[in-house]
Amino acid sequence: MENKKELFTQFQENKDLFDEEPKDNLWYILEERMDHRKKVKKLQWYKYVSVAAIGIILVSVVSFLNHYLTNHVPDRFVSNESFSSFILEDLQNDGNKFFNTSSLYTINKAYHKTPTSKNLVNIVGNYQSPDGIINFNILFENYQYMLIFDLESSPNFILESTNGTALEFKSMEGKSLELNLDEKGLQLTNSNFLSEYKNSFFKKISEI
C-alpha cells in the first residue's frame, strides 16, 4: 500500500523526468546569437549618438551664424573684470572689429574721477550771475564736467574735485573756481580771478 500514489502526485514528484543536458552545439548557437545582438545594439547606439551629434552641430552652427550675421555687436561681447563693460562700449572700433585702446586710459580715468553723486547730474546747464553780466555753461563732455564762460578769451575749467556739494573747477592756466551746489543755484565760495562775485549765487537759467 505504501507504494500506491495518486497519478498526478506521481508526476509532481518526477517533475524532472524530461530534464536532459543540451547538446554542446546549442551553447555555441546561443553565444553566436548573443554576440550578434551585442553588435546590433552597439551599432544602434552609435547610430543614435551620431544622429544626436549631427543634430547638435547643425543647431549650433545655424544659431551661431544666425546670431553672428544678424545681431553681432562686438562691444557687447567685450567685458572683463578689469574694465567694466560700459567703458569698453564707449571705445570705438575701427570697423575691422579692432578697438581703439589708445583712449582707454583717459576714459577709465574719467569714469573714476567723475563724481558719482546724484546731485551733480543736475549741475549741467546754463548759469548767470545776479547782475546778468557773467554767463557760463556746465557741460559733461569727454567723460568729464567742464565749465565754459561765454567770453571767448576765458579759459575752460574742468571739475577737479568734489567734496559733498562743494565743487572745485580749475583751468590749465591755474585759475580756480570753488562753487557750492545749493537749491538757489551755484554759490561762488572762492576764486582767484572772480573775487567780486564771491558768495554770489549763479542761477541756472536753462538746461542743456
Partner: peptide, 8 residues
C-alpha cells in the same frame, strides 16, 4: 486515481 508507483 491511486496506483502503484509507475516507472519514470
Amino acid at each position: 486515481l491511486i496506483l502503484d508507483q509507475l516507472a519514470v
